[in-house]
Write a protein that binds this DNA or RNA. Structure first.
Lengths: 230, 230
DNA sequence: TTGCCAAATCTTACGGCGTAAGTACACTGC
DNA sequence: GCAGTGTACTTACGCCGTAAGATTTGGCAA
């Protein structure tokens, strides 16, 4: 609980503190619960005070996205194989998104063109090029993976029953009519709650396998790259 | 221009007309320009009138998403190969999304669990199962493709320079510093404006190729499925 | 034809939003 | 001690979604 302060007394806020509180608030109560006023009172401060640290609400939202991007930033792409590197990156990115599911709509709708983010891409490109991808293909691969991760994270976390109180049940839609949609309900019952992760891995591997073929314009006919043989 | 009416006179609105006008408004001026008041005046009607046709703004937004889903609905998945079918579906879905880029954030953040949508999935599952996929794998494949398409559509259309006036330049970020990010800027210059579509196809094919291997638990060691040999 | 009703529309009002503008206070360096 | 600077608060404006109620209409029963 923030200590009682008198007019003009400092609260000791920083941009970072504001962003963290904002992220926490969104995680806890959803995007629509984030207003300058609510975030202010969360921090024991009036709404207008926040404008000392973020220039407006849009910048605040951009900041939230940035927080997430930064949390996955360390370019792990130097690890072992390019394939393992991409896999690690995809997993780290997915984990970061799933850790803050309420923010995903923001990630989707605003540009992640921070220079910090560009730096990550640059080093990833370097790794892929070294692994034998032509530069433009490397960019294709990178965009494909990020698009894929974002898309999956989004479809994994859409809450149905458009109520705003979906902050504590990670289960997905299970109440499909077994009469009307037999296959669908069967398939959903067949893949247990953890099935989403499996599905992600499954499709990711499929994509990586597909990439392999275009590495140096099909350097081997079928199975390429030794791939972490240990 | 809507004819001048007196109090209580009918405007002849329908839910469909409201949704269409809403979609048009969002396409033209962006999501943030859509308010009950603005949409009302668009239709020559007061804001509250709209509540006769949609129960609240959330339902209106759901309706916009539905409009898009419906436009891609006809299950083309019966066509020729399962692979060609999936490819067609992905292309149709992507086209529908790109036709209304401003709506993509909505598509991402709300459930597409209309029974109409479920019917599409059911028939797609049927096709895939007939093509040799175990049911749960078929669902994996389907989710993977939709997630992939949504993710790509999203990353293809994020506007940078978070201003709200990005409604008439489909170009993406091109002003990266060639000094600081040589590979990145080179790769972007290498892939021309139409490169996004190529990238999508490239990654889609990669994924489909990957799927092929899990069709009936690796039915052939390397190259499976004759695939539209005509 | 007349009378009535359900549906479509408009009016008013409320609380909450983002934020521009102005004010008050506490630190910092001289 | 004292000015300057930056942090925080207050007030106010115009927008938002929408609840409640008044008003008019078109269509149907008698």
């Amino acid at each position: 609980m923030p200590a009682r302060r008198m007019r003009g007394q400092r609260a000791g806020l920083t941009r970072q503190a504001v962003l963290e509180a904002g992220l926490a608030l969104v995680d806890r109560e959803g995007l629509q619960a984030l207003s300058m006023r609510s975030l202010g009172s969360e921090l024991g401060v009036e709404a207008m005070t926040l404008y000392n640290h973020v220039s407006n609400k849009d910048a605040l939202l951009d900041g939230l996205v940035e927080q997430i991007i930064v949390s996955v930033a360390p370019p792990r792409l130097e690890a072992s194989t390019w394939r393992a590197g991409l896999r690690d990156f995809a997993h780290a990115f997915l984990a970061a998104l799933l850790a803050h599911p309420n923010v995903i709509p923001l990630v989707v709708s605003r540009p992640a063109t921070t220079s910090l983010n560009l730096r990550v891409m640059e080093s990833a490109l370097e790794s892929l090029r070294a692994a034998g991808f032509p530069v433009h293909r490397a960019l294709d691969v990178l965009y494909s993976v990020t698009g894929f991760v974002v898309g999956h994270a989004a479809t994994m976390t859409v809450q149905h029953a458009s109520g705003q109180e979906a902050h504590d049940r990670p289960e997905l839609l299970l109440e499909v009519d077994a009469e009307e949609f037999p296959l669908l309900s069967a398939a959903m019952r067949a893949s247990p709650p953890a099935g989403a992760q499996n599905r992600f891995d499954f499709a990711l591997e499929a994509m990586l396998t597909g990439f392999e073929a275009t590495r140096t314009s099909a350097q081997e006919p079928c199975r390429t790259a030794p791939e972490a043989r240990r």
